[in-house]
Nucleic acid binder design. Sequence first.
RNA 1: GGGUGGGUAGCUCAGUUGGUUAGAGCACCAGCCUUACAAGCUGGGGGUCCAGGGUUCGAGUCCCUGCCCACCCA
Length: 903
Amino acid sequence: MSTETQLSSRYNPHDLEPALYERWEKGGYFTADPVRSAEPYTIVIPPPNVTGYLHIGHALNNTLQDILIRWRRMQGKDALWVPGTDHAGIATQHVVEKKLWKDEHLDRRDLGREKFLERVWAWRDQYGTRIITQLKRLGCSCDWSRTRFTMDAGLSRAVLTVFKRLFEEGLIYRGDYLVNWSPKLQTALSDDEVEYKMVKGHLWHIRYPMADGEGSIIVATTRPETMLGDTAVAVHPEDERYKHLIGRQVKLPLMHRLIPIIADTFVEREFGTGAVKVTPAHDPNDYDMGLRHELKMINILTPDGHLNDNAGPYKGLEILAGRKKVVEDLEAQGLLIKVEDHEHSVGHDYRSGCVVEPYLSKQWFVKMKPLTGPAIEAVRSGRIQFVPSHYENVYYHWMENVRDWCISRQLWWGHRIPIYYCADCGHIWCEVERAPKGCPRCSSPRIHQDPDVLDTWFSSALWPFSTLGWPDKTPELDKYYPTNTLVTAHEIIFFWVARMIIMGLKFMGDIPFSKVVINPLVMDEHGKKMSKSSGTAIDPIEVIDQICADSIRLTMASYPTQSRHISLSDKRFESMRNFSNKLWNATRFVLMNTEDLSAESLAAGPDPKFLELEDKWILANLNRATQQATAALEQFGFDAYVDSVYKLIWNYYCDWYVELVKDRLYSSDPAGQGRLTPASRTTAQVVLVSVLEQILRLLHPVAPFITEEIWQNLKSRWGNGNSRFDSDVLMTARWPEAAPAAEGEAAIESAMNLIQEAIGRIRAIRGELNVPPGTKVDIDIVTSNTVRLDLLDLQQHYIRNLTAIGELRFGSAHTLAGFSSTAVIEDVTIHVMLPEELRAQERTRLDKEIARLEKGVSGAEKKLSNEKFIGGAPADVVQAERDKLEKLKIELAALAAKRKGLE
RNA sequence: GGGUGGGUAGCUCAGUUGGUUAGAGCACCAGCCUUACAAGCUGGGGGUCCAGGGUUCGAGUCCCUGCCCACCCA
């Protein structure tokens, strides 16, 4: 929009956005400077998965971060938003393996570890920047010069340094553990990678004969094949049915092994038969019972999900085939008592979708208990605050019930565990500097490194300090750590937020951030999870293409951020696009009507002598919106922030202010009177432009593109010699500070309210009685209140200009003759003179009004006749109720009298 | 099974320590191409605030019980 003659009547953002972004980026405005003395404000991005593409959750999360960063930057802070991606071990390896198979029909093992990793890096170099590019489309003002990747050299050094220290302190250990095993991916999964789904299955009742041949006990199970690994049967210690059997032995069918009947309170008496088989190596609850009762743990599975040697005759069968055979054999032996339908929850690998098997294997762990104390304290003491605060309970709950963290992943892509094993003396040690040549204990050259890599979250946990240069002491680390705010989704409070707090306290000796803002989950418009398969997923890039980046940002930010999830409807994008268009057109109006406004006049500001009521009113509202927007942002109330600026622009500036100044703008007669003088016109122009300029600043953090575009246009016209335009770009202009409410503001507000109310009543009468818009009507405004009479009389141009008026009279008595429709605002009565044939319609309209008022009167009277109310309620509440009743009574009397005259 | 959040207009949601006649956007109805904007303007209809109890002068708001929904954990 270089000159106003080229302005389109519709906002057309598509060419503007990339150009503006390039200008910001080239100008270096995103770059933080540790040398600057300005106070820092820092956010580290939740690193998106390097294989990922921008989804709607990212759009929300990053919009909120960008609002905070842009706002603080405008406040003069040295704002740093650290961007980057994580290497997403399983996801990335999976993607590259799939591609390798599709393109070359090769398995990763065909290539070997080194060659395969070269391929992954090549893939990452080619595709890993996609999501970064998409963040730029969204307008994110990250400091791209500090982009990090969890696998880059610096961050890898941080990972090894942390590993070594934890290992040396005995906080990393290797243990047998029942892990969630994905037979398909052949790796252990963290608890968080397991998705529980309700599955329709069966409950098999199986008879286990007593070892001494006297009777039997019946157990119920959902996974009969695991009986091959049973090492006990458990009953509740107080279960009268089984009490006498505790301590005796049963003969495990098919395997012919003797196993004990044990007592454990874990057993639910009501479930199944009240007796459960115990398979410690293949069920987490059984595992715990196994530990409690020192039971044998028999693994019956191979890593790829087949039955192994311990399954005897069933060896080699795949799990489900094994189940079928076991059930058949039990039935053949008459040991299968019954089969019931049963729905139960089954863990699935959230990536491959396969059923997760609890599986006993050697893994590396981080001991969590010793680390949680300071992390809990950091939140309890308030040094770290969650927003909304109720998420703190979620955090405590997890921290207090924390389990050790399995950090091994059976993958090639990731930080390889720096542990070595000696084949000769069995020594196990950690080495991070360089690959060792031999065993430090026995000097044997027969050593090998652990083949596994670390969980990706291990490196993400270090993100707030590793990205700033740790373990080196850098100026960045010194200035920007602890960071200020973390914005993320609640589902990763455990595996990311909590671990960052732990690691930050452990290795930096300080919290990683002081505020954790939890943004809601984005659901579809009916509150269900979005999914590609059901077609409910919204692609933010598509929205940007079709609508624009500002609108998607406005939409995301306008949802209530304190709720748990938001139901996103694409209608909202449209309404925000309309809003952008509204602002655009308001600008067109301003530019069209200020062509003769000089830079000097604007720089000088409005002349107080010529400020009209509407000027004072919009300035007061601008100030209030500034105060509200700032307060909202301080409390992370993004929706309240957007709402206050939205209302300022649309409902105050466009709906009223622009309409009210039109007469002044349009008057060009040098000999004009009153408000229609050249000086008044200039004043209106100055206010019009200055308010718009401040609106742009207020809106910039959420809608950076359109505001920058318009602001540049204002700057090019009026920038000379005006300190308001000192900054090269809006994004580094100063955030406005609200002034204390000016004296007389309440009077201005109430005068304007009366006028707006009067205009509204006249419009409503015309609308309800279907008076054609072009028809001019005579109006008689009557009141005995001289203050109001003077005000209305003096400011009658507002009413004249905003409604189609013939004759307009003011006085203490109704002087116009003929039929009229009547509205009452307290002691002011407005008569709208109309043709006689509308009499019936007016009666109906009045009846409705009277009924409304009567309801109010009786309500207020009831309250005021209650002595307990008079005595119990605060005096101001009682007075307000009296005032209300008074007002309603006056209005009601006036309308009732009028109604009577219409009979 | 445990935990957390929620149930307010047809839809999505606001509603500040309890205090005017419960609001907004979208949708709907009626009328307008009024020289910034039809992606607009003006007016209108629409709610037993999930149910039941309690506290209180006063409850959408606080407490209890129940029902329903969502998410997290097991």
